[in-house]
Simulated scan of single mutants.
Amino acid sequence: MTRTVHLDFLKPALLFALIALATLLRAAPAPAAGTETLTVAGGCFWCVESDFESVSGVIGAVSGYTGGKTSNPTYDQVTKGGTGHYEAVQITFDPARVSRETLLNMFFRSVDPTDVGGQFCDRGSSYRTAIFVSNAGEKAIAEKAKSNAQNALGQRIVTPILQQGAFYPAEAYHQDYYKGTKLVLTRFGPKRQASAYKAYRKACGRDARVKQLWGSDAPFAGS
């Protein structure tokens, strides 16, 4: 009898422990000592992640969702609309090797910051551009980068600078999609993820539009 009662007591405790573990695994990891994070939204998060993981001084980038009101949103929820979230990327970098200002200057020149309705072929609120900041210092750097980009482009930039809230990492299959080896079915036929990503990026017109806007100042177009 004692053993049965003990096991019944453990069942709910084990359930709560598993729920807590799942929540921790979905939460964004804390940055390592000596590093900083920058969170930006630039349309398809596969592309932003791919771009910035190629930058010297960037330690890693995580695709996810931020800026909305729904806790632990799914990809389907975000893309259908109503959650308020952006597809975003949280970039972890070493400020001794690359500055926040440099990354922001690169960000503006890797997107179409004049587009209020999405990015390239991806339309809708979840694909809009944005920069997320945590304090007054980060906001000042972002505002300076935005002003410099607007002066350089000669067009009005609509990318907002927003207060950073909770960042939810996207589902595992979205992470490092651009270099994945899993076979997926696309409108171009069966392809490995890396090939599917390249086909999508070209068909979406991302690099063509960025080159049209920024010319030789575009840091990632054609990469």
Rank of each mutant, 00 (worst) to 15 (best):
M1N: 13
T4M: 14
V5G: 11
V5L: 13
V5N: 10
F9Q: 15
L10W: 13
K11T: 14
K11G: 05
L14S: 14
L15I: 10
L18N: 10
L18I: 11
A22Y: 06
A22S: 14
L25G: 04
A28P: 03
A28C: 10
A28E: 09
A28V: 05
A30K: 13
A32E: 11
A33E: 15
G34N: 09
T35C: 05
E36S: 11
E36T: 10
E36P: 03
T37C: 08
T37D: 04
L38W: 01
L38Q: 02
A41Y: 00
A41Q: 06
A41M: 01
G42D: 01
G42Q: 02
G42S: 09
G43E: 01
C44D: 06
C44M: 11
C44R: 00
V48K: 00
V48H: 01
F52A: 04
E53D: 15
E53H: 10
S54E: 15
S54Y: 02
V58M: 02
V62A: 04
G64D: 01
Y65P: 02
T66A: 11
T70Q: 13
T70F: 00
S71T: 09
P73G: 10
Q77C: 08
V78N: 00
T79G: 05
T79C: 12
G81L: 09
H85K: 04
H85N: 07
V89Q: 01
I91D: 01
P95G: 10
P95H: 12
R97N: 05
R97D: 07
V98C: 02
R100Y: 08
R100L: 09
N105E: 12
F107S: 00
R109A: 06
R109G: 04
V111I: 13
D112H: 07
V116H: 13
Q119K: 08
R123Y: 12
G124M: 04
G124Q: 03
G124P: 04
S126V: 04
R128I: 08
T129G: 14
A130F: 08
A130Y: 01
A130P: 07
N135W: 15
E138Y: 02
K139I: 07
E143V: 02
A145R: 00
A145V: 07
N148I: 12
N148G: 05
Q150C: 09
A152C: 08
L153C: 04
L153T: 05
I157T: 05
T159C: 01
T159S: 06
Q164V: 03
Q164S: 12
H174L: 08
D176S: 15
Y177G: 04
K179N: 15
K179Q: 15
K182W: 05
V184Q: 08
L185E: 13
L185C: 11
R187T: 13
R187M: 09
P190L: 09
P190A: 03
R192V: 11
Q193N: 08
S195T: 12
K198I: 12
A199K: 04
Y200W: 15
Y200T: 07
K202T: 12
K202I: 15
A203P: 08
C204P: 02
C204Y: 03
G205K: 03
G205T: 05
G205Q: 10
R206Y: 11
Q212M: 09
D217I: 01
A218N: 06
A221L: 02
S223N: 09
